[in-house]
Nucleic acid binder design. Structure first.
Lengths: 290, 290
DNA sequence: GCTTGTTTGGAATTTTTGGTACAGCTTTTG
DNA sequence: CAAAAGCTGTACCAAAAATTCCAAACAAGC
């Protein structure tokens, strides 16, 4: 889920900050807990209650009272908060930089671009070479029909992929997401077929259904998704996750596009012997028209 | 080459690194686990076994087997390692981008990514802020109908833009490039209308024709193109060029996507007052369906 | 010095979590 | 095509963790 509630992402005041402010109102043992936590923030809080208590030199119940006092429902909830805070901080090192220190380009554009570039780097880092290569191999097998599909936003990317790959090789098509549009086509799908699905959060049930049906019939499913993994991952043979978080109310698909283009480039190169004449033929046909 | 001889601070080989290397030798469900972990490293591993298993789409025992295979005595030990690694990394700001890490990801993918990133930077540099802002302003005017269009490859990007913007505001649509499909619609196009065209080299005559016709009827044309400028530039009021050259037989549209997403983000923010209720309503409608 | 209210830790309790045995299934191999 | 090996999930159990309860210790007020 995305937090659509507030537009300008004002940093939530860190828990550490709150603790410092409320320090005076703590009981002696709560203070020990607080100091202990702040001295190693936030890692000190990631252990067990017993460990925390022992390090702070107090008892477990005191630790519990401490976190309750901070407004958490329990120790696990407290830990979850720490993790999320840590993750948010680590993933957006850019947010720290002053927002108006960029000179060139539209400021909004520049900031957006930096964020997207971060996504691309992170995406590349997290993709296993073997996985990428395996997908290239799969898409380069001309005996296997390839079908692209995607959700309401990602469908456009699927189309983009399809429009390129269909020129490189044959048996490439695009399947619309709605079940009514693919139900009858499923009879054609079998062991040899490859489904390449694009699906990011707000995962679409119809796309999932398509992939599950195809997988049940023996098709090989390749999934391009976000790091949280679409439910399709459960039936997918290969998963390529891309980072998608951007300073926007929408997610960014740049990482998915990157993977897509890299795949197309690799397959084109791999099949160059047969792709070249094909591409030339397509070009010739296009020029004949008028 | 740099002289690294003096200091041999061999980074403790991150667990992530080891996982990437051993990826090939994993069983299918272990790969799932590995992927899941890498895509969110290391936070994905900080939850409970059950949570981890569920997110990766595998069973809890498989997760246990996975961590055992990595050489840990148990899940808690595995988590402790992750925490320590994270802490170490966070405390040394140098570790940010360890150069020995660069080689990761599929080599082809990594090289491609660097090239794309270069394109994005160049694209941002070459866009006049005023031009960008003017387009945002134009697209934020709800009284002006907006029509997206594009060529055989870029059409997908136009669709992508349309699918987002149509949720933010009304009077947004997509026009297919072939003249037969838009000829009759042109009668509707007038002074108030805005055409946003995507067109990169191997410029398509039909898209050019569409824009020329629309411009002749008084419509405002916005063009997203490559640095060599599509012929549409002659009739366009605003031109946003993106760098597209990549190590591939194909051009890369990442720069166009970047501009598109930045535009959508800016317009969404600009129209937030009216966009928010719209987006919520759309969400509600989508959830009613089943 | 007694009482009252607060704070604290030990021990019991409950919930959650990690771990294991086993059976079904898939893939590989002969 | 059958047997074997390997992988994976269900069901169950043990362990450990969080949480609650209660009585002791302490401080402040009369």
């Amino acid at each position: 889920m995305k937090s659509d509630s507030s537009v300008p992402p004002i940093d939530p005041p860190s828990l550490a900050e709150r603790i410092r402010l409320e320090m005076d109102s703590f009981t002696p043992s709560e203070k020990r807990a607080a100091h202990m936590l702040l001295s190693h923030y936030p890692f000190a809080g990631l252990d067990t209650v017993a460990e925390f208590a022992s390090r702070a030199g107090i008892s477990a119940p005191s630790v519990l009272r401490f976190v309750t006092r901070l407004g958490f429902g329990g120790f696990p909830e407290f830990q979850r908060h720490l993790r999320e805070e840590l993750e948010a901080q680590l993933l957006s090192p850019l947010a720290k930089a002053s927002p108006s220190d960029r000179s060139h380009g539209a400021p909004a554009l520049a900031a957006f671009a930096e964020s997207v570039i971060g996504n691309l780097r992170a995406t590349v880092e997290n993709i296993a070479p073997a996985e990428f290569d395996a997908v290239v191999e799969l898409l380069s097998d001309q005996r296997r029909p390839v079908h692209f599909t995607g959700g309401r936003f990602t469908g456009a990317l699927a189309r983009y992929a399809e429009s390129h790959l269909r020129i490189v090789r044959s048996h490439v098509d695009y399947i619309e997401g709605q079940p009514a549009l693919w139900r009858d086509r499923m009879i054609e799908i079998g062991r040899k077929d490859v489904i390449v699905a694009f699906d990011i959060r707000r995962y679409q049930e119809d796309v999932t259904a398509l992939c599950e049906t195809a997988a049940r019939q023996g098709a090989t499913v390749v999934l391009l998704t976000d790091p949280w993994l679409s439910p399709i991952a459960r039936v997918a043979r290969h998963v390529l996750p891309a980072h998608i978080v951007a300073p926007s109310n929408w997610d960014s698909s740049a990482g998915l596009l990157l993977i897509t283009e890299a795949l197309v480039a690799a397959v084109t190169k791999r099949l160059w012997e047969t792709a070249k004449p094909r591409m030339e033929a397509v070009e010739r046909l296009r020029n004949e028209k008028p």
